[in-house]
Design a protein around this nucleic acid. Structure first.
Lengths: 346, 346
DNA sequence: TTGAAAGCGCTAACAC
DNA sequence: GTGTTAGCGCTTTCAA
């Protein structure tokens, strides 16, 4: 009674062979009206759950998933993504899922295109993609679609029907989270959104965060806050920022829309500019250190590791179990301070 | 070349039969010196990974896990645990893992003992346990240990060697997180820790949170804050709290150590007592509503659903794959405000 | 001490 | 149209 029904059971109950049951279940091959009825009658009564283990064993297929990822050596952020991918790879090794990471130069669209072609040639069963470059990614996704290869994107969203799913965060909402944190710490004054450009790949990210941030204060209808935006190149930060702060003494908070808040904190520390609330993104080592020493008040965790893990996970389960792929998997926007950071690092 | 080695391959390479390979791999049965050497020589050269799918299929075992849980109808908190359990149950249904939830009355140790005996009689393969009552839980865990049944506890920690593992949060650290949040919002004044007792089962929880909270301010070495503790019965809150606040006008913040912060907010709302920072626990519906309307500043998420899910997950993977059980799995201490609450509810 | 063979549940090729 | 059968990788029983 504990045992689950098998096709053998059903065959016996319906008075037909296992083959016929299989044909009914999967609507493959020809089945007579009479047999169809008998089998369906049994299926209606019992709760048949196919044994996926046996299914998998029989198929004995090797699934191949490619991951198109910015070179993890270039940026700690992608390193953490890689960790998530390796975790998932490990989890599914027993299910004959092979994972190859193909990395491209995050500063070069040419490199992206090249590596994309490499993957296409390999004819993988599915692709996980960090779509850094909007136009190129769109074109790549269409290529995969044409080859019937499901694609999940993570980190950056590319709105295109050819993509099977997305794993990431609501960036507009993430701007609102930062805004709310400022509002809880500061009663009034100037808040400056700082976009630190190292390359152009984050442009969309930064814009959406700014949008959410400003929207929050607009709905507040408060005259107490003034919001400004400062767009600055990472290399020029050390000249521009101190100057800016001198000219705007009413500034009480800095919202850094990328993971480079440690650059800002380093400057503030060097010039001993205290009493500024700094909120940034991502648990990079430098950021965490400044969080612990108080130069950064909060970090918002984009959870790159988990994003990548979930993306690969979804693809693997899709291939193995035919699980449908969620169109949009939005992860929580984690608020991190010096006291809860440790558990997020593990 | 993509295919993995099978015992058949090894048998062929070593010039023995599959049976012998199996005996060597699992050290079962008698194997001649010569055969042992040959097989081991092959095993040293290749990277053999047993096919867990086939292993599982062959064993065709149904695993039975019992969950001893406070009745989910009594408290929304346990309801969320139940959801996590059902999720995990669903995930492992394909692997012949059966999960039975056995609920006890969270106000009665007698009920706990009774249900524990019920489970013992069922002789499950593993047990997930919410050890509400310290003494009784300890005794129950010892019983399971005597029957060689692995036990994972969640939510409450019971320090005893007979337990296989624990999934939960560092409660002392969680008190520190709350303290840090207050410190970021309030420059000086009185902070009151409120323990709302409905029953005695949370006593340990509350004490540890208080310990972390006070420790944070002690290491601050600041004279700006005074910390007090208020222990109050839920039914008497409406008389005692307003009185207390009247007598201590310096009070700037309330730290509610249980999930009952909505009771406090309800009172503050009714009496229109604003400008008090309230921090509480858990994403119960009432709490979330007060968070959104601003009567609660932050909630700390204990993530009961995920705790239960991970506990069951660990037991299932232990039974299926013989995965070792982590002694202590500490979950992140999530900081929730009105802007990031949504994603945590999904 | 060892090999051969059956069988877990399912699929697919093959007779009839 | 339908039943039979072989086989996925592994375990286990049974002879030898």
């Amino acid at each position: 009674m504990n045992r689950k029904y098998t096709i053998k059971d059903i065959a016996a109950l319906a008075g037909v062979s296992k083959g016929t049951v299989d044909r009914v279940l999967h609507k493959r091959g020809k089945v007579s009206e009479a047999a169809l009825k008998k089998v369906n009658a049994i299926l209606d009564e019992i709760d048949y759950q196919p044994n996926i283990i046996a299914q998998n064993l029989k198929q004995n297929k090797v699934f191949h998933i490619c991951v198109l990822l910015p070179n993890p050596e270039m940026d700690n952020y992608w390193k953490r993504c890689e960790e998530g991918i390796l975790n998932a790879k490990n989890d599914f090794a027993a299910f004959n899922v092979m994972v190859s990471i193909v990395d491209f130069d995050p500063l070069s669209t040419a490199s992206f295109n090249l590596k994309h072609q490499d993957i296409l040639k390999q004819q993988p069963d599915a692709v996980l993609l960090a779509p850094l470059f909007y136009k190129e990614s769109k074109s790549a996704i269409n290529d995969y679609y044409a080859h019937n290869i499901p694609v999940i994107t993570f980190n950056n969203q590319v709105t295109i029907d050819a993509v099977s799913g997305f794993v990431g965060q609501d960036l507009v909402q993430s701007g609102r989270v930062a805004a709310k944190l400022f509002e809880s710490m500061i009663k009034s004054g100037g808040l400056t959104i700082i976009h630190i450009n190292e390359d152009i790949t984050n442009a969309m990210h930064m814009q959406e965060k700014e949008r959410g941030f400003r929207a929050f204060f607009e709905t507040l209808h408060s005259q107490d806050f003034t919001i400004s935006t400062l767009q600055v190149d990472a290399k020029k930060l050390h000249e521009i920022l101190p100057d800016y702060l001198n000219k705007t003494p009413e500034t009480k908070g800095l919202f850094i829309t990328t993971s480079k808040s440690h650059l800002v904190s380093k400057l503030l520390e060097a010039k001993v500019i205290k009493d500024l609330v700094v909120i940034g993104y991502d648990l990079l080592e430098d950021n965490v250190n400044y969080l612990k020493s108080g130069w950064i008040s909060y970090l918002i965790n984009q959870n790159p590791k988990h994003q990548a893990y979930l993306g690969l996970n979804a693809l693997a389960e899709h291939l193995i179990y035919q699980n449908p792929i969620l169109k949009n998997k939005l992860l929580p926007i984690d608020i991190i301070n010096s006291e809860n950071v440790q558990q997020y690092l593990d």
